[in-house]
C-alpha cells in the first residue's frame, strides 16, 4: 500500500496488525512489529517524501512471520552506517528510529542510494 500523507499511518498500522493477528503472533511481538513499522513509515514520510510498503506473510519450518518492505524514492541516506547509530539524526528527532527498529525486529536490511531512494526490509517471526 502506498503512504503519502500522515493520515495513512494509522490505517497502515491497522493493516499490519491484522496480518500479525492472522498468523497468531503474540501481543508483545505484535507491538514490537507495529512500533517498528510505525518508525519506518514516519521516516519514509519525513525524509523520503512518502513511498510504498509491501506486507508479506512468510513461513518457514515451525514458524511464520511477516515481512515489510518500505520503499521510497527520496534523497537516500548518504551514510547508512552512521544512520544506524543511536542518537544520530538529521531531523530534530531523537535518532532512535533506525537502530531502535532494528532492535525490535528479527531481521533488518537497508539499501540506500543517494538521489535514488531507500529500501528497508524488516522481518518479524511469530516466535522470534
Amino acid at each position: 500500500m502506498s503512504i503519502i500523507k500522515e493520515h495513512d499511518v494509522v490505517p497502515f498500522r491497522n493493516r499490519v496488525k491484522e496480518y500479525a493477528v492472522k498468523i497468531g503472533m503474540s501481543l508483545l511481538n505484535q507491538t514490537k512489529l507495529i512500533t517498528g513499522a510505525s518508525e519506518l513509515v514516519r521516516n519514509m514520510l519525513k525524509y523520503g517524501g512518502g513511498g510504498t510498503v509491501k506486507i508479506e506473510v512468510l513461513s518457514r519450518t515451525r514458524d511464520s512471520g511477516i515481512r515489510l518492505t518500505f520503499e521510497d524514492k527520496g534523497p537516500g541516506i548518504p551514510d547508512v552506517k552512521k544512520a544506524m547509530l543511536d542518537g544520530f539524526t538529521t531531523g530534530n528527532s531523537m535518532g532512535l528510529g533506525l537502530p531502535g527498529t532494528k532492535r525490535l525486529m528479527n531481521e533488518f536490511d537497508i539499501q540506500s542510494e543517494v538521489g535514488k531512494g531507500t529500501t528497508i526490509t524488516i522481518i518479524k517471526w511469530k516466535n522470534g
Binding site: 501481543l27 508483545l28 507491538t31 514490537k32 512500533t35 532512535l96 531502535g100 527498529t101 532492535r103
Partner: peptide, 14 residues
C-alpha cells in the same frame, strides 16, 4: 501503560 508497550519502548531505547 501496557506491558507490551513498556517492553517495546525499552527495546527501542526510549
Amino acid at each position: 501503560m501496557q506491558p507490551a508497550v513498556a517492553i517495546t519502548l525499552v527495546e527501542l531505547g526510549l
